[in-house]
Amino acid sequence: MAAPEPEAPTTTAPTRAKDHSPWNWLLFIPIVVPLVPVFFNGDSPRVFGFPRFYWLQLAFILLGVGTTTLVYQMTKKRGGH
């Protein structure tokens, strides 16, 4: 999949757009989702005896790791300097 390129760097502001990428918006998902109690504040279903409150919040860790990894991979320096 082609990572969305920021507009071609111009000589006046060579690094201006370095941090800008639509991929960054994905970071909001692991910020918002773990802060909505409706998702996790319940007992069933249980997984290995863990109420949902516990296993789901632990699973959100994977959501966070997955998202930051994806964003990092998609936005890191493309094709060197």
Partner: peptide, 9 residues
């Protein structure tokens, strides 16, 4: 747990 999840993104 949520505290140390949301911090990184």
């Amino acid at each position: 747990v949520p505290y140390t999840i949301v911090i990184y993104p």
